[in-house]
Design a protein around this nucleic acid. Structure first.
Length: 511
RNA sequence: UCCUCGGUAGCUCAAUGGUAGAGCAUGCGGCUGUUAACCGCAGGGUUGCAAGUUCGAGUCUUGCCCGGGGAGCCA
């Protein structure tokens, strides 16, 4: 709150919309942008957006000066202005509070704003991302992202972890597999944008005990799906003296903490996104843990086939119902009243979108069923296999002890089964896929050297990493959590491009 | 890289091979409780690009460009 003595002696109190509840009955000033307006002849409703919420500001011709009344009418969408007036609770208002405006001051009349309060396609919105983030939905997502990041930092800070920043420019590929962004680095040849801070994190854990690396990560792969960005944020804790079980326990407590914090802090935003919070309330430890071998058995089981069939049947039923509704509406269209027609037009668009989704699902489900049934023991889990597995549980599932052959060179082998790596992935429910990948690390110098040879990696660039095994090697573990996938899951949105202010994708690097 | 879908007014979408339309947005007029406000009027088009088939192409064919979704890979 900002209080200022005005020249004529009255107090001017600046407040944010999110704090309006504390100012009911008193006069305050709001500063913001015009989100929308509705006009009557002698009454004007201005929906003010200030970044913290929306407030309906009511002007009537005889409650404001003639000059203010006229200038209020010049306001276009996203024009900036300030209003002063009394705050009132009102059921009819979005947000629950309204202002009866006494004075209004126009700061800037906006040019015709491209993003209208109607539907737009992603093609149209993506190049206007710098404006798109002003919309309610995008603002809600970005606020939730903020809470998630704060919850991540608090979780580790409160448990004695030290923030440990890994370099972004690195001399070599960490895992030697993915395609990296490359740049010239003076006389030292090529440098690459990091794809993981993990190896550096291991050095940090040996120095400080428990650390977390938190920063941007880059992948130059031509991945074009709703789960991929070329630039994304990853948090990677690394702990000395942690074995795989400790690692999994930390991961489930970590995820639960994030989800419960968002439920507590961002009720309003989750409601704005129409997120089903019941599904999030469940997210508490312990998470189900299945070994890779058990997961493969589950994929091969009759029950998996039945679950897919059930989903096919449900999709077909929904398709029938929607088609029937569409036909019914079209049949009666000519007899409908004007307003009913419009309502139906809007509904028709909704139905069409949903029908497209169902069509795609119906194309995919039989393939998923086949893929699960014929899953080859020893292969890595595919996207659809992961999705099918998550159907068994009401919270994230941890899959552990993958075949060593499909995992990174630095992962420790399972002493009870040399073909397995002490690796674990956490799969988010509702088809959001892998949000965590982690492992216990190989701490034996000789084994690690062997892995490096097996993977055909240049030993010389890993010498510093090998030193960690030469000078007081200890068992240690860690994992990486993808921030954007976590935001997408918690928000219940279908694409990671809306989870970061300015997404970087293979076909888009601006604005 | 592969598979698949798409590109029509500022936006969202219609249009059996036969005169390119609607809603919203914009402008003007009306309305003192609107909730994506409503009612009336008006302006607004090189149908992504190029070629072909045809009396006639938004519609059919071929090529190209751009984008969406998915696979692979991954967080």
């Amino acid at each position: 709150m900002h209080v200022e003595q005005q020249s004529h002696g009255a107090l001017m109190v600046d407040v944010y919309i999110e704090d309006l509840a504390q100012h009911v009955g008193s006069e305050v000033t709001l500063k913001g942008w015009l989100y929308n307006k509705r006009e009557g002849g002698k009454i004007l409703f201005l929906i003010l957006r200030d970044g913290t919420g929306l407030c309906q500001c009511v002007l009537s011709a005889d409650s404001v000066s003639e000059a203010d009344w006229e200038s209020a009418h010049t306001l276009t969408q996203e024009s900036s202005f300030t209003v002063t007036g009394a705050v009132r609770a009102d059921e009819r208002a979005p947000g629950g509070y309204e202002m009866d405006v006494r004075t209004l001051s126009v700061v800037h009349v906006a040019e015709e704003y491209p993003i209208t309060p109607k539907e737009h396609s992603i093609d149209f919105l993506a190049p206007r991302r710098h404006l798109w983030i002003r919309s309610r939905r995008q603002a809600a997502i970005l606020r939730i992202r903020h809470s998630i990041i704060r919850a991540i930092r608090n979780f580790f800070d409160d448990r004695g972890f030290v923030l440990f920043d890994a370099p972004i420019l690195t001399p070599n590929a960490v895992e030697g597999t993915s395609t990296l962004f490359e740049t010239e680095y003076f006389d030292l040849g090529k440098a690459y944008l990091t794809q993981s801070g993990q190896l550096y994190g291991e050095a940090g854990a040996m120095a400080l005990g428990k650390i977390y690396v938190f920063g941007p990560t880059f992948r130059a792969e031509a991945s074009k799906t709703r789960r991929h960005l070329t630039e994304f944020w990853m948090v990677e804790p690394e702990m000395a003296w942690f074995d795989l079980d400790d690692d999994m326990t930390l991961a489930e407590e970590f995820i639960s903490h994030i989800v419960q914090t968002v439920l507590k802090e961002r009720k309003h935003e989750l409601a704005e996104l129409e997120r089903d919070t019941a599904a999030l309330e469940n997210i508490l430890p312990p998470f189900p843990r299945v070994s890779y071998d058990e997961a493969v058995e589950m994929l091969h089981s009759e029950k998996t086939g039945e679950m897919v069939d059930e989903r096919i049947a449900a999709a077909e039923k929904e398709r029938e119902e929607l088609t029937a509704e569409l036909e019914e509406g079209k049949k009666n269209y000519n007899q409908m009243k004007e307003w009913k027609r419009k309502k139906f037009d809007a509904r028709e668009i909704q139905i069409r979108v949903r029908l497209d989704e169902i069509e795609e699902l119906l194309r995919n489900l039989p393939k998923w069923k086949e893929s699960a049934k014929n899953f080859e023991h020893g292969a890595d889990l595919g996207g659809s296999d992961e999705t099918v597995l998550t159907w068994y549980f009401d919270r994230p599932v941890i899959v552990h002890r993958y075949p060593a052959a499909v995992k990174a060179f630095y992962m420790k082998r399972d002493p009870e089964d040399e073909t397995k790596a002490l690796a674990m992935d956490v799969l988010a429910p509702e088809g959001y896929g892998e949000i965590i990948g982690g492992s216990q690390r190989e701490d034996n110098l000789d084994y690690l050297l062997e892995r490096i040879r097996e993977h055909d990696l240049p030993q010389e660039v890993f010498e510093w990493f090998l030193d960690l095994r030469r000078y007081g090697s200890v068992p240690h573990s860690g994992f990486g959590l993808g921030v954007e996938r976590t935001v997408a899951w918690i928000c219940g949105i279908d694409h990671v491009r809306e989870t970061i202010p300015f997404p970087r994708m293979i076909h888009r690097n601006s604005p």
